[in-house]
């Protein structure tokens, strides 16, 4: 596809039980984009991801994907049944044609090399999330899709995760599409925010979006004011300072 476009969604609509979950969504994901979808519960965030990834066929609209698109997806509600005996390393290598050394490098970066020989079924939610992220980075994808990736992490885990995400975004030059509830952290990390409430209310750079009347309408005045305090240049690394 031309103009470095990875995914182009045009006029996407999804109707379920006579309710329009997604209304006329237009969205383009380019190379090196870092997009976060925000929105209240039931806004259709996960459904939009499902449509873009091809898990769900929208009632209306078209989705065009680049031929060299290589997606890595981290689901929201990942659980592993106890009847499946599989170590973290075996799971990461499943259906991937990569060398063990590359995987070990990624695990080192994520500080989770001690988890590799553990069974997936004994890992905590946070540990499992990290293994999923590690798996999604293997095999050099050009689009990372993350559905609420930090929901099982504690606050320091979330901070580390977003720092790490920033790092891989710059180092690997990949595109990231993420659904998140961590508004304050998203504002300081992502390059573009899309506010969804069944339709796209507003979208743009995080620093500008918090001033948008639609954003204020969606999340409230107090929240928007609080968010504007979090305006950051994503190249800066002063997360520690904010906590002081």
């Amino acid at each position: 596809m031309k103009n470095n476009i990875l995914i182009e969604a045009e006029n996407i609509s999804v109707i379920r039980d006579k309710k329009e979950i997604l209304q006329d969504i237009n969205l383009t994901i380019h190379n090196k984009d870092f997009i976060t979808i925000l929105g209240p519960n039931g806004a259709g965030k996960s459904m939009l991801l499902k449509c873009l990834l091809g898990f769900f066929k929208p009632n209306n609209g078209h989705i065009k994907k680049s031929e060299d698109l290589k997606i890595s997806y981290t689901p929201q509600d990942f659980t592993i049944d106890k009847s499946m005996p599989i170590t973290a390393l075996d799971f990461i290598m499943l259906n991937k044609k990569v060398k063990k050394k590359e995987i070990l490098n990624i695990l080192n970066e994520l500080n989770i090399e001690d988890l590799i020989h553990k069974q997936l079924s004994v890992l905590s939610g946070g540990e499992l999330q990290k293994i999923l992220i590690a798996r999604s980075l293997v095999d050099s994808p050009n689009l990372l899709v993350l559905d609420e990736p930090t929901q099982n992490l504690d606050v320091s885990g979330q901070l580390n995760f977003y720092k790490f995400l920033n790092k891989i975004y710059y180092e690997r030059e990949i595109s990231i599409l993420m659904v998140s509830h961590d508004l304050h952290m998203v504002i300081s990390t992502t390059k573009k925010v899309i506010c969804l409430s069944n339709h796209i209310c507003c979208s743009g750079e995080p620093s500008k979006i918090t001033q948008d009347p639609e954003f204020i309408n969606l999340f409230g005045h107090e929240f928007a004011d609080m968010m504007s305090l979090y305006k950051h240049d994503i190249n800066h690394n002063h997360i520690g300072k904010d906590n002081d």
């Binding site: 990834l53 091809g54 997806y73 599989i86 499943l94």
Partner: peptide
């Protein structure tokens, strides 16, 4: 084998990986 194991663990990850 590998594809079926991945589908068994999580269908959506498998679809995203073009299985």
């Amino acid at each position: 084998w590998e594809k079926l194991v991945l589908i068994t663990i999580n269908e959506n990850i498998a679809i995203a990986e073009k299985i």
